[in-house]
């Protein structure tokens, strides 16, 4: 899988799904509209600062709270290329993979990577590299089927591909 490259944006511990995308915007259905409000209660400027491929670094229990799929959808649409956190809340973890948002659990990187740092991420190897210091961190490697779901862009396109696009199972 291609490497992801971007700059680090930092958030703290226990960032819940209401902070990621406030409930008042849940009537919005287009990802790009959700994206404009991502994390706005934490930092109203953040959505505008994120460049495609940037990396969001968080503390522990990222994505706790409700089961809304809007949260990973909004992050992905905002341009977040990957979320690195100390730990993830269970439903967010599942939803992120299902919508094709790469996530890596790596407490060390989550602690040490500084805001603004340029990093590259190799999902196939679970490797996170701080370009400035040259320091490399290792996260647990995803099994191939998870990488395939992420690469396909989420569960819906993944199933579509597995069905051979014509609706008939190919395997």
């Amino acid at each position: 899988m291609r490497e992801l490259r971007g700059r680090v944006h930092r958030v703290g511990d226990d960032v819940d799904t209401d902070v990621i995308i406030p409930g008042r915007y849940l009537a919005l259905t287009r990802p790009e509209d959700l994206a404009r409000h991502v994390l706005e209660d934490l930092d109203p400027e953040l959505a505008r600062r994120i460049r495609p491929g940037d990396v969001l670094v968080a503390g522990k229990n990222f994505g706790c709270g409700s089961s809304r799929e809007h949260a990973p959808v909004a992050l992905k649409a905002a341009g977040v290329g990957c979320v690195i956190a100390g730990s993830f809340a269970r439903i967010f973890y599942r939803n992120a993979i299902n919508v094709g948002l790469p996530i890596l659990e790596c407490p060390e990187a989550a602690r040490e990577l500084e805001a603004g740092a340029a990093v590259s991420v190799d999902l196939t190897r679970g490797a996170i590299r701080d370009e400035g210091s040259g320091r490399e961190y290792r996260a647990a490697v995803f099994p191939p089927f998870v990488l395939e779901i992420i690469r396909a862009g989420g569960l819906v396109p993944y199933v579509r591909r597995r069905l051979g696009g014509d609706g008939e199972a190919v395997s």
């Binding site: 089961s67 973890y93 993979i97 299902n98 569960l155 819906v156 199933v159």
Partner: peptide, 18 residues
């Protein structure tokens, strides 16, 4: 599971779990 997960399992007969 959520409805999307269920739909994928309905189509493929499999799912991913931690």
């Amino acid at each position: 599971v959520g409805s999307t997960d269920l739909a994928a399992a309905m189509a493929l007969g499999e799912t991913w779990l931690k």
